[in-house]
Every structure is written in structure tokens, then in C-alpha cells.
Amino acid sequence: MITVTDAVVRYPAARVNALDGASFEARAGCVTALVGPNGSGKSTIVRALIGQVPLATGHARIGAFDCATADRRALARTMAVVAQREEPAFPLPARDYVMLGRYPHHGTWSALGPADVEAVDRAAHRAGAESLMDRRTDALSGGEWQRVRLARALAQGGEVLVLDEPGTFLDVAHEMAAYELLEALAREGRTVLLVSHQLNLVARFAAHIVLLHHGRVAAAGAPADVMRGEVLEPVYDWPLVVARDPAVGAPVLIPLKKR
């Protein structure tokens, strides 16, 4: 479970707080989506969870760990993060890259063993990246790279998964497959926190949506509670309507033309 309580983050030389008292929860067993306009604080929350930005006040917790003080390696065994951008400086075979997900399970000198190879194979299979394992990371398309990164996060093996825009660069089929996989992973008992701009997809797969605005939680709840015109319009500052998808019955956001 992820618990963020009254989190305040101020970047040096910034005039306003990037997070301004945000509180929310992401429970185990379901997908929680973190949405909001650009600059609303979504990525700052992800960076606070991995200890890359200090909280001025408030707390960010993963289960029993306090993100600010926890042993980083123990935290990495509990929570795997797929950040927005990540690219090896020097190309690797994809299998070696996925294997990096096993590093938090090892000390300085302990060798990676058969258990790690097995975890990597299992993760690659689940992420649909098996056929990519022998390719080099710089020879993968954007979508293939996303799947390999998801495999790396799964190889880490934590109870908590945090993904920043997992659908980027994926075509419709792969995007749907990725979201279905995340839903399945959550049903197995994991905590899945999803940062996304894809409100319509999120509305179908997330059980809980947290809408951020200016570093604060503007609304939070089931998709039906958050996906409402009067909630979203002031936050995105754009005229829009929310309809109901005729095929699957999920709320669908339709942005209108401004003039």
C-alpha cells in the first residue's frame, strides 16, 4: 500500500510548491491512477516515492517503509518503478537489462544465480517480452522497449508497482495488453499506481482515481466520481463533456473545441 500524507515539495528556486499538501492512498489489490494536467505534481510524487526529492513536510510511505528514511535497497525489493524516461547509456542485450531488476536482491559481491535467471524469464513472459530478450536495447522500437522495461520492473518482484505513463509509444493492442496485465497484477494482490494522461483508459482499468491540481488532490474516488465534467473542466481549464462509452459503459472524456 502507498500512503502519501500532506506531502509538500518545493524545488529550489521555484516560486510555488510542486506538491502543496497532497494526500492519497493506493491500496493493494487494485489499480490506482494518478492523473492531472502537466505540472500538477504527478512526477514529483513518483520522485518522492523513490527518495529523489525530499518532502518539506508530510510523509510518503510504502507499507511500513518511510520513503525518506528507508533502506533504499529494501525499498526497491518492495516497490518497482518504471520512470517516464530511462535508457541505458551504453546499449545492452535486453536480457542483461532485465537482469538489472535483480540487483536489489543482492549484496555487493553475491553472484546472480539460477533463481535470478528464472525470475527474469518469468517476468519477460508476463510482460510479453520473451522474444525480445536476445535483442539489444538500442535495436528495440519504442513499444518493445516499454515492454522490456515492464519486464525489468516485474523481475524486481515487489508488491508495489509504480508506472509513469506505461502506455506511451504502445499501439492499441499493446497498450490494451499492458493495461490488462496491470489489472491482473493488481488482482493478484499487488498495489499498482499508474501515472497517466490517458483518462479514458484509466477510467476503464483503475478502481480509484486521484486527480491532482497545483500539487493538491482536487478529487479522488471511483472513476464515476472523478470523471465528471464539473470536476475535470476547471482542473484542465478546457471545455469538455463526459459521456458514457456505448460499448463498455465506462465514462469517456470528450474535449470540445474552445471556439
Binding site: R47, Q52, R72, A83, P88, A89, F90, Q156
Partner: peptide, 18 residues
């Protein structure tokens, strides 16, 4: 091993326990 992970970028390394 920290060098391996830092070669992915600072945030990615942080997420992997560095």
C-alpha cells in the same frame, strides 16, 4: 553495480535501490 544502475539514469537508479 551502482555504476550499472546509474548508467540507466538517476531516477531509474534510485528506483532500483541506489
Amino acid at each position: 553495480r551502482d555504476i550499472d544502475l546509474l548508467a540507466l539514469g538517476e531516477d531509474a537508479a534510485a528506483g532500483l535501490g541506489v
